[in-house]
Design a protein around this nucleic acid. Structure first.
Length: 410
RNA sequence: GGAGAGGUGGCCGAGUGGUUUAAGGCGUCGGUUUGCUAAACCGAUGUAUGGUCGUAAGGCUGUACCUGGGGUUCAAAUCCCCACCUCUCCGCCA
């Protein structure tokens, strides 16, 4: 979230950010809510000060063994008044906090403004493979090789679930191991294996709640959520903590399954592996000092790109426009890989700098050695990379005329 | 799931309704002493949020915070209720 004081003092910056994001949030209503809230806060505090004073005076009266009746009724009077004003105040405060959590981050000045069509291609790597036969899509390839079973997955779970079988299952496992090993051994990340069910506080910390609750799988009886990405548990590792300056930067990488309801995207990419409810992903998460976060974003992006280069999959990198970046991000790169069978670019990674937006929500701070002050860290994350769509690209890019794969021996 | 014990500042830990301004210790920072280090001694040391003064660093001031929420009371770390978490034992279980 943004700092309430920052919003109060820079309403124009926030208004512009909302406009650039095409977000309908009513800032003026928020600002007057804030005014009213502070007015009532002052009232409650003044009354509380009086109440504290009466309690102090009471101590003296008891010590001097004087009559307490008058003071007690004075105290009762104040108590009643506080209860009245405080009711209104706490209702307002709750509303204020909820609204504050619904204001998106301010986009970084370096990114294009407006509609997703303004996303800018900032990098292109590799060449689209030329086929001397008509390339198949991954569904036909996978079913021909009997390495993925969509039908039975639908039977046991529902549509848009997937079963990997035999070499397909092994490919999935091998890719996970390959990515984790690369990031831990070459890129300096520490491997984490986090819980995949998280509580409400964690979902709020990284920004999935309160706005996106309907997109999440939820266990109602326990108020737990299935994680949509490892970003959630891993970033929340340091929720409500004060880190030492010398601990930073912290790099974590984690494999998890990711669960997405994809509510509202029915009819879109309904076939195959490109949009499934449960997929595997290796995620990269960083906690860094504020002044380094944009350099760290570039490094993070490179770490993800390395995976694709080592697998020799053509990709390009988009710098997302203000209208396309996620709620919590200030700047975001998407990496898309090319799938020649279905002739589509598929997003396999989103590398974002959240600046202090998540850190403020989740209260992740560090103590600056020189000044002794507490500051919010900057958090970043990116996929390195998402599996299901990567498998699409591997199958389609490495296919041979007979429907077998160049890179897989059966 | 059952029974019991707990949750206090960066950390350890005292604290059964108002002389507590959360004792004491550790740590950290500053100082004295010192050839250097250490020790000793002295001093300082939370967070959030509002008001106000200041160009600013910051000052002054209010409020809240002893896991979280609710209650009792003129007054709650302290009493009561609920939740969460940790530990011990029992049961169940991959």
């Amino acid at each position: 979230m943004l700092d309430a004081k920052f919003i109060r003092e820079n309403p124009d910056i926030v208004r512009q950010a909302l406009k650039d994001r095409n977000d309908k949030f009513d800032l003026d209503a928020f600002l007057s809510l804030d005014d009213e809230r502070r007015r009532l806060m002052r009232q409650v505090e003044e009354l509380s000060a009086l109440q504290n004073k009466i309690a102090e005076e009471m101590k003296i009266i008891i010590k001097e063994k004087k009559d307490t009746a008058a003071k007690i009724s004075e105290g009762k009077e104040i108590k009643k008044k506080i209860a009245e004003v405080d009711k209104t105040y706490s209702d307002l405060e709750a509303k204020f906090k909820d609204q504050l959590l619904r204001i998106p981050n301010v986009p970084h000045s370096s990114i294009p403004k407006g509609h997703p069509s303004n996303n800018k291609i900032v990098k292109e790597w590799g060449e689209k493979r030329k086929f001397d036969f008509k390339p198949l899509g991954h569904i036909e390839l996978a079913e021909g090789l009997d390495i993925i079973d969509f039908k039975r997955a639908a039977k046991i779970s529902g549509s848009n679930f997937v079963i990997f079988k035999g070499a397909g299952a092994r490919l999935e496992r091998a890719l996970i191991a390959f990515m984790l090993d690369l990031h831990t051994q070459k890129h300096g990340f520490k491997e984490i294996f986090p819980p995949m069910l998280v509580n409400r506080d964690s979902m709020r910390g990284t920004g999935q709640l309160p706005k996106l609750e309907e997109d999440m799988y939820k266990l109602k009886d326990d108020d737990l959520f299935l994680i949509p990405t490892a970003e959630v548990p891993v970033t929340n590792i340091h929720r409500d903590e004060v880190l030492k300056e010398e601990e930073l930067p912290i790099y974590y990488t984690a494999y998890t399954a990711c669960f997405r309801r994809e509510a509202g995207s029915y009819g879109k990419d309904t076939k195959g592996l490109t949009r499934v409810h449960e997929f595997d992903k290796v995620e990269l998460v960083k906690f860094v000092k504020p002044e380094t976060s944009y350099d760290e974003l570039e490094k993070l992006l490179n770490n993800a790109c390395t995976i694709l280069e080592m697998l020799n999959i053509p990709y390009h990198v988009l710098m997302l426009a203000t209208g396309d970046i996620s709620f919590a991000a200030a700047k975001c790169y998407d990496i898309e890989i090319y799938a020649p069978g279905i002739d589509k670019w598929l997003e396999v990674s989103s590398c974002s700098n959240f600046e202090d937006f998540q850190a403020r929500r989740a209260s992740i701070r560090f103590k600056e050695k020189e000044t002794g002050k507490l500051k919010f860290v900057h958090t970043l994350n990116g996929s390195g990379v998402a599996l299901a769509r990567l498998v699409v690209a591997i199958l389609e890019n490495y296919q041979q005329p007979d429907g077998s794969l160049l890179c897989l021996k059966f």
